[in-house]
Write a protein that binds this DNA or RNA. Structure first.
Length: 151
DNA sequence: GCCAACGTTGGC
DNA sequence: GCCAACGTTGGC
């Protein structure tokens, strides 16, 4: 079982959207490092911290869970789609996606500011390589975030 | 809306 | 294979 942090801009797709949909496909990952996590490391039942980015108070809002194996991101082949990638072909899929479902909202959101202010979280990828849209989270980081959400 | 950080592209 | 140019992300 592994832990991850998925970022989403709430104006694009928020956790409430995920609740409404009951599940969703996490398409549009166009970064190789994130792609490799999806393709090689992320497994069914892995746990996700759902992060809202690009807003006035960036924060972790909820927990989600992986519910599918990785599969080719077919949006990369759709010329009319915003995630179209001219270098992808049906023989050679550069990009992958998977499905996730909501688990539960945190009692309290955990803000980026509070994460940065917590010395125990100074090694989090979120703090050090903030632009990566899918990030590994350690078990101890996961526990600390959950604790912070309860207080 | 600015801009630093950083990933990608493509000419050489 | 280097690196300048460029595009994107996302915090502020």
């Amino acid at each position: 079982m592994n832990y991850w942090l998925f970022k989403s801009e709430p104006s694009d797709y928020s956790y409430d959207d995920l609740i409404e949909d009951n599940k969703t496909q996490w398409e549009g990952i166009r970064n190789y490092q994130a792609r490799n996590f999806i393709r090689d490391r992320i497994k069914i039942n892995d746990k996700i911290l759902f992060y809202h980015s690009n807003i006035s108070i960036p924060h972790i809002v909820a927990l989600a869970e992986v519910i599918s194996e990785p599969y080719p991101d077919h949006f990369a082949l759709d010329k009319t789609h915003k995630y179209y990638d001219p270098k992808s072909t049906s023989d050679n899929t550069r990009w992958f996606m998977l499905n996730i479902k909501p688990v539960k909202k945190l009692d309290n959101i955990v803000t980026l500011e509070s994460i940065k202010n917590n010395p125990k979280l100074k090694d989090m990828v979120l703090v050090n390589r903030s632009r990566l849209s899918i990030q590994p989270v350690t078990k101890s980081e996961w526990k600390i975030i959950i604790d912070m959400s309860l207080s």
